[in-house]
Design a protein around this nucleic acid. Sequence first.
DNA 1: GATGAATGAGTCTTCATTCAT
DNA 2: AATGAATGAAGACTCATTCAT
Lengths: 206, 206, 206, 206
Amino acid sequence: MPKISEERRADRRLQILNAAWKCFHRQGLHGTSMADIIRVSGLSAGAVYLYFRSKDDLIEAAVTSSLGEFTELAKPLFERTPPADPGAFMTELVRLLERFTKRGEYSLKVIAIHGWSQALTDAKLKATIAKMYTDIRNQIARLATMWQVAGFFGTAAQANEVAEVCFSMLLGYMVQSALLDDVTTASHAKGFAALSQIERLRERRA
Amino acid sequence: MPKISEERRADRRLQILNAAWKCFHRQGLHGTSMADIIRVSGLSAGAVYLYFRSKDDLIEAAVTSSLGEFTELAKPLFERTPPADPGAFMTELVRLLERFTKRGEYSLKVIAIHGWSQALTDAKLKATIAKMYTDIRNQIARLATMWQVAGFFGTAAQANEVAEVCFSMLLGYMVQSALLDDVTTASHAKGFAALSQIERLRERRA
Amino acid sequence: MPKISEERRADRRLQILNAAWKCFHRQGLHGTSMADIIRVSGLSAGAVYLYFRSKDDLIEAAVTSSLGEFTELAKPLFERTPPADPGAFMTELVRLLERFTKRGEYSLKVIAIHGWSQALTDAKLKATIAKMYTDIRNQIARLATMWQVAGFFGTAAQANEVAEVCFSMLLGYMVQSALLDDVTTASHAKGFAALSQIERLRERRA
Amino acid sequence: MPKISEERRADRRLQILNAAWKCFHRQGLHGTSMADIIRVSGLSAGAVYLYFRSKDDLIEAAVTSSLGEFTELAKPLFERTPPADPGAFMTELVRLLERFTKRGEYSLKVIAIHGWSQALTDAKLKATIAKMYTDIRNQIARLATMWQVAGFFGTAAQANEVAEVCFSMLLGYMVQSALLDDVTTASHAKGFAALSQIERLRERRA
DNA sequence: GATGAATGAGTCTTCATTCAT
DNA sequence: AATGAATGAAGACTCATTCAT
């Protein structure tokens, strides 16, 4: 076989990543053996190691690659003009997460949580995740500044502090929906709206 | 069995748990071998297995036992009369978490995240955590009802939806402070206050 | 099982070493798998790793431990008074090597050659072997000084240069007897005696 | 097949052999993977297998091909008339070995030792090496006969026994210079001269 | 109760070789 | 002739758990 095309190479990686996602979802990062992934991917051991240097490499890709996609997907939401108000934004963001995250045989939400745990022990992965999460939070902060200008909040807090809390809500939603099963995008949206006084502010602005 | 024996038993368990917490913090749940815990605890392999039936048993205890303590510790906060307003409550709750969680050589925050990951794969642990988290959230919901009565929120949302969001912020705070390092109790408190319009509402109530 | 006695521990190590020697002789250092040694030793994988940290560790022990014994065994030969003349000494040394080296199912001569090859790639092993070989050569040099005083050689060469050549003969004997099969202690002894003019010198001294 | 093709084939083989020698020197025979050789040679896997049937084939070529060259190179030394005396001969032989053996990024001395180890496990290689070594030793024996006739040694020993010892010194020199680093052609030459009473014999012959 | 040596299935990874292109 | 992706058996090593003492 002569040199493979870049496209085919990407396909193969995705094929392996898909197998990894399925396994990681069901059995966790450590509960999944390379043999599991190899079997599910339908490739040989050697082939898998041709595309990923090690299990850690594969884990990093599995945890990280999806995050990049999500950021890309969320772009329009961050750049909409005029910016959505806090309630609408958070509602959309959670819905987007839910949509993006739910796949056939696995949920990226679940894999993200496994990734957090892994990152606490693996400095490289932690740095990668930290970078990507900080990017998202900064995007929220940009919006928060506009919200402040628009009078949604007072000036006592800084925009990035508000962003922190909004981002916490997103992360907390992931945990609750993964572990408690009784949390929906709708209930979270309504709770957030109430908490942030969105109705009242909308009224006042009207 | 005389009472002394029961006490000794509890002491030994705590001794082992402490070793486990230290190891779990540094190396994660799967990265820690029983041999690690045995070495750090200063006991023998046989002895450790006398107090915990298996590694899974020890993990469950390590993840769970602390949660019980926390719930106990948070009781006064939930039962204070008159109830704290949302901003004050969340500020206190996060501070309490931070205080409770930070120990000499390990942080229960970190161990909790490892626990989530583990729970996603271990139905028994998941059920245990779900029960305890739901309890806490219910306590928050009780408060939220009072906040609603006190006019902090409108009636569009249900108390348990608000509680959901508040709880998400607590969980999200844990994730952010563990992974991003740049989050403080103060910044989160201020962000929450701003988001929930606490100043304006306080003014209005005054 | 409570703590094992130091003696039993040494026994176990020897049991494993014996298995290793047998395997290394037949299949070489790399051709032998840990599974081979484990099978031949009659122990379990875990047990073997309880006594030797790694295959490299076991290789070092297998190559090195015998050398120590040999040095001990050769002591009387080095310390005999009056010192043996060069011919007698080399004859004895080669015979001693042959006797020491030939064991039931393996020959330490063969294992030593495997060890040289390994040492060329493994700095730690090389250093260990170099130290032990230098020690032996120094002992020969001590004798060579006495030979010189006794008039066996002129003063053009230094004792350690003579020792070098004597030691080369020993090493070369190992290689030839391992690879060419047609070399005997007797033929080597006679060749050395002739080369070093031993008969003539003996006559002259008489 | 035209002549050019045959030349190209030899060139390619040498290109691969050079890569193999470099790798074998640094990493040993088993420590070197075919991938290593392929990378260093600059060819493709398929190409390498076009010129050598297997790794064993390549090892045999790497160990053996150089020996043939050496024998060729040593011819004049063996055939010089009048024959060199023992001291001069050994000095020249060791020097020749040193010169022949030392190459840019590898030393054939080192590779020869790896070869011995390999030969102990690989009957085919052993036979090939044995044949070539015996040839060299026979050449020395031819000389030794002449030495004997010339009165350098008594008649107690056979020429081939003397040759055995001379050859041992050559092999031993290889081992010592590879493992102990402190051995030079000069020190070995002087030691040999002293041991074999060359000065005295020269004097007497004068 | 307490010890710690022993077990052996299971883990990740490598590598000589092939063969479709 | 030449390429290099693919194979899959085999390698070294770990680790939760037990049980004879």
